[in-house]
Amino acid sequence: MRTDIFARLDREPEPPKIEIPRMSRHRIALFGGTLAFYLAIVVAVLVSSWLVALDWKVMLFRPYQQWPELHAFLDYYVVLGQRGPTAVMVASWLGWRSWRQHTLRPLLTLGTSLLLLNVTVGAVKFGLGRLGPHYATQIGSAELFAGGDIFPSGHTANAVVTWGILAYLATTPRARRYLSALSAFVSLGVGLTTVYIGTHWLSDVLLGWAAGLLIMLALPWFEPLITRAETWILSVRARWRVRLGLRRPAPGGPGSPAPVVLPQSLSGTSNSTGTGITDAEKSCPAPETSGSVAHTGAGGRTRAHSPHAVRSERAPLTPAGSRRPPHADRAARGGTAPAHPVTGGPVAP
C-alpha cells in the first residue's frame, strides 16, 4: 500500500472548472453604492465634519490602555493585514492550485488585485497626506496634507483583498460562502485592531474597507485581460520549451520529418508480376529509421534513403515465373498435357 501523498494526489480528480464571475446588475449596484460610500468618507474628512470629531474621541479614549491584556495577542493578529506575509501565504496556496488545475488564472487574479490595490490606495494615501493618531499636532484637525500616508488604512484594504480573493476563486458555492464570511471577519478584526493599537483613525479603517471592497467588485472587468495574459504566457512557455529541446514540436510544424513517398515502380497494385506491393504490406506503414535523409529524384518524387532498405523497397532477386528454361517438348505449366498409358508400350498412332 502506497502512502506517498503525491501519489494519492495524482489519483485525485481535478476540481471542476468554475464559471468566471461577470459584472451582473447586482454587482454593479454594489459597486456604485460602495463608491458613493467611499466618496462620502473622503468628503467628510476633507471638511472636518462629525467623522473627524469621532476620530479624536476614539483616539483620546486610548483603547490600548482600557484593555491592555489584549495588546500582546492583537500585535500578532494585525499581521494578517500586512501585505508581505499575507501575499506570500495566499500566493503559495494559489500556486498549488494553479499547478493542480493546470491554469495560471489564480495567480494572475491575485497579481491583478494587488496591483490595483497598490495603485488606488497608494495614490489616495500620498495625495491626501494625512498624519496618524500618534503624530497628530492639533486636536480636532483632520491632519491632511501634512506628509502622512495612513488614509485609507492599507492594512484593512489589504486584508479585504488578500483574503477575499480566496472567496472570489472558490470552486463551489459553499466554499465561496464560507470563505467570504472568513475574509469579512479577518478584515473587520484587522481594521479594529489598528484602531485599538492607535496606528489609524476610525475613518481610515472605514475608507480601507470601502477601498478593498471596490477592488473585489471590479475584478470581473479585468477577467478578459487575465485570460489574454494567461494565453500569451503559456504560448511563450511552449515556444521556449521547444527551443530548449524539452518538448517535440507539434506534427506538421517546423522540424517535423518529411513523409515517405514510394516511387511509381514500387507503388503498383498488381501482384501478378511479383514487383508490386502486397495488401499486407500496404496496410503496414514503412518503419521510420534514424538518420534518414529525403531527396528528390526524377519526376519530382520524394524518397527517403535509410541505412537499411525496407522489404518493399528491395528489388526482386529472381525474375517472375518459373526458374526452368523453356523446352520444346514440354508443355507450359497449367496447360493440357498429352495422355500417357498406365502400362508400357508404344502409343498407337
Score class of each variant (00 low, 15 high):
I139V: 14
T137L: 13
V190A: 02
A40H: 00
T3W: 13
T193H: 12
V342W: 15
G32V: 11
V310K: 05
C284N: 12
P338V: 06
P13M: 05
W240A: 12
S272A: 13
T231H: 13
W99T: 02
G191A: 08
L80E: 00
W96H: 07
W221G: 14
F6G: 09
W209L: 05
D4T: 04
A332T: 12
L51C: 06
T278Y: 03
R83Y: 13
Q138A: 15
L128Q: 05
I18S: 15
G164I: 07
R237K: 12
I41R: 02
S272Y: 10
R176F: 02
R177D: 01
T289R: 15
R228P: 00
P251G: 05
G344N: 11
R2F: 12
T194S: 12
L131R: 09
A210K: 03
P133E: 10
P68M: 06
R11D: 09
R2K: 08
G321R: 11
I277V: 15
A175Y: 03
G198S: 06
S270G: 13
I28G: 03
L60H: 14
R8H: 12
M23Q: 13
R247A: 14
H134P: 09
T103D: 08
G129S: 06
E288L: 12
R8Q: 12
L219R: 00
P220R: 06
V58Q: 06
L234P: 00
W221C: 12
P251R: 14
H71I: 10
A91N: 07
I233S: 05
P257D: 09
R100V: 05
S49E: 11
P287K: 08
Q82H: 15
G245P: 09
L217P: 02
G321A: 10
P173M: 05
P326A: 14
T194P: 07
N118T: 09
N118V: 08
R303P: 00
R314W: 06
W67E: 07
G111D: 01
W99H: 10
G276S: 04
R330A: 03
L213T: 13
F31G: 08
L35S: 08
F6R: 11
R176S: 05
Y178I: 12
V88Y: 11
T269I: 11
A304L: 12
Y178G: 05
P85F: 06
G297D: 02
Y168G: 01
V88Q: 01
P152G: 08
A36R: 05
T34Q: 03
S312N: 01
G189E: 03
P133C: 10
H305L: 09
F61R: 04
A175G: 07
F73R: 07
G252P: 05
V45G: 01
G253M: 04
G300S: 06
P251V: 09
L114T: 05
A53Y: 03
G111N: 00
S256Y: 14
P341Y: 04
V236R: 14
E19A: 14
F73D: 06
R25S: 09
R301D: 04
Q264N: 07
A298M: 10
H295I: 12
Q264L: 12
R130G: 06
T156Y: 07
P106S: 06
M89F: 14
D75V: 11
Y168I: 01
L107S: 04
R176N: 04
L9S: 11
G81N: 01
S256D: 08
L144S: 08
A331Y: 15
G321V: 08
G189V: 11
